[in-house]
Design a binder for these strands. Structure first.
Length: 288
DNA sequence: CACTGAGCCTGCTAGC
DNA sequence: TGCTAGCAGGCTCAGT
């Protein structure tokens, strides 16, 4: 599932390819893929517009148009954007059933949106809607402003279980289930640990883990477990770096050998090592 | 405010 | 081997 590094890779791939292109037509294959506004209003806003840039906010792809509005695309679980230099009749025959939308450009190229599970969303945001959209998202973890101190203030501003807090896009933008499990494992924090009660050393470890994991994944063009592909159809290479995500409960911890455990937290499967990531009980003495 | 659960979807897999 | 029930989960919304 695409998280920050995967979405960023898609944007970096597509930006040079789409800049300056004029949208000549939009085709919609599944009505719920278009989130807003109506198809008529979407066409009015988008067809004839020229693309200024492709960028990312949280896990959202922003295609900024010449009218200063933007097409936003959320890949959710299985969405894929694929650029094609020419309109090809048999573009991807076996994938055709999952083609949900197509942007055609005036030079004959096109941008295809595939999405097996139909969770992905395309929308148009008028210029005056973009500030509110941006304000709805929290800190970008790869922004230099995301320091260990910033993370500490975020964690202490809430009294919540740490994993759901890290997944909350309005608090920290771009983290998903894979990278949160990996970051908690590396920083030895139990996913249910109360965010306001994490000590300084663990906060520093968590900050370092988040930045390191995301930077490495980005350098390797993302993690491909099944569906994820860049804007040119290339898989990422980060999957070999995952330590615990995807392992089954009972599997020996890669660090200490204890059996890993699985919990469902906020409707998301969570894998962790009960020995490396102990849940701090009420009488627990502070750990060094 | 924090948390829970339903709903959206369909391919894959575990278990019979 | 073949079938089916349940799992996978990002996000929104309603309810406690």
């Amino acid at each position: 599932m695409p998280e920050l590094p995967e979405v960023e890779t898609v944007c970096r791939t597509l930006d040079p390819l789409l800049r300056g292109k004029t949208i000549s037509a939009f085709w919609l294959g599944w009505h719920r893929t278009l989130e807003r506004p109506t198809l008529d209003l979407f066409n009015t806003a988008v067809v004839g517009a020229t693309i200024e840039s492709v960028s990312r906010r949280a896990k959202l792809i922003l295609i900024t148009l010449s009218n200063c509005g933007a097409v936003t695309i959320h890949l959710r679980m299985t969405g894929e954007l694929l650029f094609r230099p020419t309109s090809d009749a048999d573009r991807n025959a076996e994938r055709e059933p999952y083609l949900r939308a197509v942007f055609s450009f005036s030079d004959g190229s096109e941008l295809l949106f595939y999405d097996t599970r139909k969770f992905g969303k395309i929308a148009y945001r008028a210029p005056n809607e973009l500030a509110a959209l941006d304000a709805g998202y929290g800190s970008e973890p790869l922004d230099p402003a995301f320091t260990s101190e910033r993370l500490a203030s975020i964690l202490r501003a809430h009294r919540r279980q740490t994993k759901p807090l890290l997944l909350d896009q309005s608090v920290i933008a771009g983290l998903g289930n894979i990278y949160v499990d990996e970051a908690l494992f590396r920083s030895r924090i139990h996913p249910l640990q109360l965010s306001s009660e994490i000590d300084d050393a663990h906060i520093r470890a968590l900050h370092a883990a988040i930045v390191e994991i995301l930077s490495t994944a980005l350098a390797l063009h993302g993690t491909t477990l099944r569906d994820y592909r860049s804007g040119l159809g290339e898989p990422g290479q980060n999957q070999s770096r995952l330590l615990v995500y995807g392992l089954k409960p009972g599997t020996p911890c890669p660090v200490c050998g204890s059996p890993l455990e699985r919990l469902v937290i906020g409707q998301r499967g969570s894998i962790f090592c009960p020995n490396c990531q102990p849940f701090p009980g009420p009488n627990d003495t502070p750990r060094r």
